[in-house]
């Protein structure tokens, strides 16, 4: 929060600056240069117009991003309907104990870990493979057509994706037609808990893999052709070239994306799960974010309890990113910061 306080003192001073500084600016400041030693007073007088650009965005961030962060104190305070959004009385770790001791919490916790883990396992490597396959193409037109089409799902609303999933998996949908064509029995997919994970993963692959290739393809263009040339002269075949030149070439990109993926691990597709699941599939589909949504806003109205779970989930997320970042920094020298 130290950064937060630092900014708080920018805003009032900025607000006061314009009237006092107007005369000085009228005198005509020269070209603006980097002067690290300018005091706040000088800087504000010379650049007050620039500071006016900052006021609204900073206010926005403070109100809509930082107030909710502070608002998490209701995890430690009892919330009374109609009362303060920061709660009314301290209850310490009451709500944390409450969820840690509840069985439904641990069910959804493990569901989250499993669904997040599977998503990471499937949706992280597939874009790399697709990018490598695209990289072997020699027809520019063909490559561009494949790229254009596989990027498209990324632009679809989650509601549309959910709608497509419902239609394809419906009892008379295409998937069941295929099953019946091979002599199988139609399956009511969306009502079967054991089918939820495969369906969720498939829709996730469909929507993210094509778009996920972009950064890898960009990294691939930076690999020096001479490396391949040299490898060929040394007698390396295509597979060896891929293994020893291409993959190391895109490793920094891989690491950065892996860290980002690990960071969103606990927040697995909340909106998509919310659209796709139903009471029949809660056993496998219900994850932390949907569970806390239900107990908090959907049916329960137990804001403090839900906020405690949300805070727990977010802290795990932060811890995962920081850890992954440190490990990656040590091991391969690639990191987010």
């Amino acid at each position: 929060m130290t950064q937060g306080t630092g900014t708080v003192d920018v805003a009032p001073r900025t607000g006061g600056a314009p009237s006092g500084a107007a005369g000085a600016v009228g005198a005509g400041p020269g070209p603006q240069q980097l002067r690290r030693n300018d005091t706040w007073r000088v800087s504000l007088r010379r650049h007050w117009r620039l500071y006016t650009f900052v006021i609204l965005p900073v206010l926005f961030l403070l109100v809509f991003r930082y107030v909710p962060m502070i608002g998490n104190v209701i995890a430690f305070r009892r919330y009374r309907p109609g009362g303060s959004m920061f709660g009314d009385e301290w209850v310490g770790f009451y709500y944390f104990q409450m969820f840690i001791q509840s069985k439904p919490f641990w069910d959804v916790f493990w569901n989250t870990v499993i669904l997040g883990g599977l998503t990471l396992l499937v949706c992280f490597p597939l874009p790399i493979i697709l990018a490598l396959l695209l990289n072997e193409l020699r027809s520019r037109t063909f490559k561009r057509v494949v790229q254009t089409i596989t990027y498209l799902p990324h632009f679809m609303s989650i509601v549309i994706v959910a709608g497509m999933v419902f239609q394809l998996t419906a009892i008379n949908g295409s998937v069941n037609q295929l099953i019946e064509a091979f002599g199988g029995e139609a399956i009511p997919f969306m009502q079967r808990a054991d089918w939820f994970r495969p369906i969720y993963l498939t829709s996730e692959v469909w929507q993210t893999v094509g778009w996920g290739t972009i950064l890898y393809l960009a990294a691939l263009t930076t690999i020096d052709d001479q490396l391949y040339e040299a490898a060929r002269i040394d007698g390396a075949n295509r597979w060896q070239q891929t293994w020893h030149i291409t993959l190391p070439g895109i490793r920094p990109t891989m690491m950065v994306l892996l860290i980002l993926n690990i960071g969103t691990f606990m927040a697995v597709g909340f909106e998509k799960v919310l659209l796709l699941y139903n009471p029949l599939t809660y056993d496998t589909a219900d994850v932390l974010s949907t569970y806390l949504y239900r107990v908090g806003i959907g049916e329960g109205g137990n804001y403090s309890f839900a906020a405690a779970i949300g805070l727990f989930e977010a802290l795990i997320g932060v811890a995962l990113v920081v850890t992954a970042n440190q490990i990656s920094k040590r091991a391969v020298g690639a990191s987010l910061w």
């Binding site: 950064q3 937060g4 900014t7 920018v10 900052v54 900073v58 961030l61 109100v63 809509f64 991003r65 930082y66 107030v67 909710p68 962060m69 502070i70 608002g71 998490n72 209701i74 919330y79 959004m85 960071g263 974010s289 806390l292 949504y293 908090g296 806003i297 804001y303 839900a306 906020a307 949300g310 805070l311 989930e313 977010a314 997320g317 932060v318 990113v321």
Partner: peptide, 21 residues
């Protein structure tokens, strides 16, 4: 100011506090 913005990428308030806000 850059830090102020970047922190929100790493950690967001969460559903419930946003709703109450």
């Amino acid at each position: 100011l850059v830090g102020l913005a970047m922190v929100t990428m790493l950690y967001a308030g969460g559903l419930i506090p946003n709703y109450l806000l």
